[in-house]
Design a protein around this nucleic acid. Structure first.
Length: 260
DNA sequence: CTCGACTCCTGTTAGC
DNA sequence: TGCTAACAGGAGTCGA
């Protein structure tokens, strides 16, 4: 599903939509418009203008309009981004592979005949003008290790839940969290503030490697743990059956043998 | 402020 | 074969 990694790939893909004049805006699904944004406002702000920059903070994609106004795009767990008919990521984990135009929730057409479009079967994403970027923590790709440690390794909450808290650090989703802690050999249920120095450094180091690997390999579903994230799945490292729990409201897989 | 519980969305899948 | 219930997770809200 789209986590920070996917949104970064979306951001790069959306750069081909920059500096092209917008001629039409389609937002047929009112539910998909957030924070009071209306189709009329989107038309007024975007028509005749162009996108000047594509930025990302966590799982939020921000397209800067050449007027200085901002368009925020969220993708939930099944949102896909198309530019000129081509998807940024062809096969999105947990989303549908069917080609169903009714799932198009937002689109802008350009004067050259192309378009930028969001398709989201389950409608958990959304579009809003002037998104509140500062409600999010620092972005996981650019946050310093020191700052990351200060934000994450505090309190009694389960470490996994901490990592998923977008106000602490923005961009980590369920699969990034599970893969990171599996590689770092840390039990996801450990209190976030209970790790010693070596363990903290291990988490930070593996988080950075996981991000780099996932971007290079095309998404957060490419992890080594991922094939085993099924009921009865076995640890790819040492073969024991994985523990399946709910932590931080999310299904969590971990190895009872090597994650402590 | 912190934190867990709950709710929303709906296509897919597991199970009877 | 056909139906139903469970499942997936990002994000917002609410109450203790």
């Amino acid at each position: 599903m789209p986590e920070g990694v996917e949104i970064e790939l979306y951001r790069r893909w959306s750069e081909r939509a920059l500096d092209r004049t917008i001629t039409e805006v389609r937002a047929p699904d009112e539910w998909f418009l957030k924070d009071g944004t209306t189709e009329g406002q989107l038309r007024a702000v975007l028509t005749g203008r162009s996108f000047a920059a594509a930025r990302r903070r966590g799982k939020l994609l921000v397209l800067d309009v050449d007027t200085g106004e901002r368009l925020g795009l969220r993708f939930g767990m099944t949102g896909q981004l198309f530019v000129d008919g081509d998807a940024a990521i062809a096969e999105l984990e947990y989303s549908s592979r069917r080609d169903e135009p009714a799932w198009d929730r937002f689109a802008v057409a350009f004067d050259d005949g192309g378009e930028l479009r969001i398709r989201d079967p389950r409608r958990l994403g959304g579009v809003a003008l002037e998104p509140d970027e500062h409600a999010l923590g620092d972005d996981v790709f650019t946050i310093t290790p020191k700052r990351l440690g200060e934000r994450v390794f505090v309190g009694e909450v389960a470490l996994k839940a901490r990592l998923l808290d977008q106000q602490r650090v923005a961009g980590i989703g369920n699969l990034i969290a599970d893969e990171t802690l599996w590689r770092a050999s840390i039990d996801p249920a450990r209190p976030a503030g209970g790790l010693d120095g070596n363990e903290r450094r291990r988490v930070i180091r593996h988080l950075r490697r996981v991000l780099a690997d996932f971007v290079a390999d095309g998404g957060s579903h490419t992890g080594r743990l991922q094939p085993a994230r099924v009921r009865g799945g076995r640890c790819p490292r040492d073969g024991v059956e994985l523990l399946r729990r709910e932590i931080g409201g999310r299904t969590t897989y971990s190895c009872p043998h090597h994650q402590h």
